[in-house]
């Protein structure tokens, strides 16, 4: 399971700060929906491809993979609009979606996950007013990133164990005998991870207010 769509390159696009790229993406989306003309959408699409393949030197496959997930849908949409609306509407609708999907793919492929996490922490800093600490958001993202391969491995192990016993527990029985106990195990694991982190000083009391004593009186 490859866990990132990031494509490492030394390019000017890669060096642009993540926040700027995300802002540019948002602006592009607003502009394309505000000006639904063929030159605008077509121009945007060409520009996105030039930036992605030219300036950022991304492999065609990196963009094609993202485009492929929406390809059949775009074709269906085009046919639908060509039949029931008119050809220009069909072209604008499809090209606009394709341009946005590719632009987002370029941002994703040129920005490290860690940079994105940093942007998220920064964007969340106003939430301090509501008692949210941005560092906790970074922590929860890090935990989820660690849990994903762990879960994938456990699921594989169960599949293998069932195959080795010559069958699989299916239906309602399977839910009761496999899935629910597995979920309980995972919840216990999460509980343990939480306690372990607290023991290492990740606890939920903000440092400014001082630490709680290890065993608070009831």
């Amino acid at each position: 399971m490859t866990l990132a769509l990031y494509v490492p390159r030394r390019s000017p696009v890669h060096r642009v700060p993540a926040g700027v790229k995300l802002l540019a993406l948002a602006v592009l989306a607003v502009v394309l929906f505000a000006v639904p003309t063929l030159p605008m959408t077509g121009g945007a699409l060409v520009a996105v491809v030039v930036v992605g393949l030219g300036a950022a030197r991304l492999p065609v496959a990196a963009l094609a993979r993202q485009a492929r997930t929406v390809l059949w849908w775009l074709i269906g949409l085009f046919v639908f609009h060509a039949l029931f609306s008119d050809l220009p509407t069909a072209a604008v609708t499809v090209l606009r979606l394709l341009a946005l999907v590719l632009a987002a793919a370029v941002v994703t492929a040129t920005t490290r996950v860690s940079e994105m996490v940093a942007v998220i922490e920064r964007l969340c800093s106003p939430l301090r007013l509501f008692g949210v600490r941005p560092a906790r958001i970074g922590l929860v993202i890090a935990m989820a990133l660690r849990f994903i391969p762990v879960l994938a491995e456990r699921a594989d192990r169960i599949r293998e164990a069932q195959a080795a016993r010559g069958g699989s527990a299916r239906g309602i029985r399977g839910l009761r005998t496999t899935v629910a106990p597995l979920l309980v195990q995972l919840l216990q694991m999460a509980h343990t991870v939480g306690e372990a982190l607290d023991a290492r000083g990740a606890d939920d009391v903000p440092p400014a207010r001082g630490r709680r004593s290890p065993a608070p009186a009831a």
Partner: peptide, 27 residues
């Protein structure tokens, strides 16, 4: 919400391996 954030920051976690900001512009 966290899952969606992970998708948005570029992990191919949606079924069929879709991910990145593109999916939030899609149908």
């Amino acid at each position: 919400l966290l899952f969606l954030v992970l998708v948005a920051i570029g992990l191919p976690l949606l079924s069929s391996g879709a991910g990145g900001l593109s999916v939030f512009a899609g149908a």
